[in-house]
Design a protein around this nucleic acid. Structure first.
Lengths: 102, 102
DNA sequence: TATAAGGTTTGATAAAAATCGAACGTTTAG
DNA sequence: CTAAACGTTCGATTTTTATCAAACCTTATA
């Protein structure tokens, strides 16, 4: 059974990944846009107005998915992003509210 | 008068700086330690158990101060860090609570 | 099924951050 | 006042992250 130090440290590691993922202007914009869309609609990856190559765009969405901020529906020639709102609220309570105003 | 887009974007810029500052294991540990110290004591920069050179340590504390997470009292041969708890709670409500558990 | 329209992966390059040693500054102790 | 102790700044290096073009993959459509 892990002691408190271990528990805290692993929890902090997860938080660190989230913070790293958010610490980039494009990725932060994506997440904030998704948060501010109350309808929780699936969004095309191209619908965020990002002015980078598709390779770079793909890189950022993969990163956001890998840390659990979004789920990512891959339909081959069609890529959709969806905020993991409920899961995030449970795992990192307050995170969404913190970013909401941005 | 700035429109919403401008307002949001500058608010997001501030948030981005905070997120970047927190997106490093040492800096996150420093802030979480300060948050979990309910007494809001001033802490020696050496008291966080960071295993880096003093130049690097100084670099991280400067960064945390520059984004407003801590205030930094420089007494020449003595450096103290203090969480800007009230200001942070006002400017980024929920941030401290979010990090508290880590 | 062939082709077009995305998205992803790979490999290379560019940009940003972290790190350290050395030189310097400031305070305190002797 | 001098030396010791500690923090900061500077310059150079290393490590990490971001970026893109090209090749490839997946789906939809003619």
């Amino acid at each position: 059974m892990p002691n408190d130090e271990t528990k805290n440290s692993s929890k902090r590691d997860g938080m660190l990944l989230i913070l790293k993922a958010l610490a980039h202007p494009m990725r932060l914009k994506i997440i904030v846009d998704l948060i501010n869309d109350e309808d929780d609609a699936e969004r095309h990856c191209t619908s965020f107005g990002l002015t980078v190559s598709k390779a770079t765009r793909s890189h950022h969405f993969k990163l956001l998915k890998d840390v659990g901020l979004i789920s990512h529906i891959d339909r081959g020639n069609h890529s959709l992003a969806l905020l993991r709102r409920v899961a995030l609220e449970e795992e990192y309570p307050g995170l969404i509210h913190l970013l909401k105003g941005c």
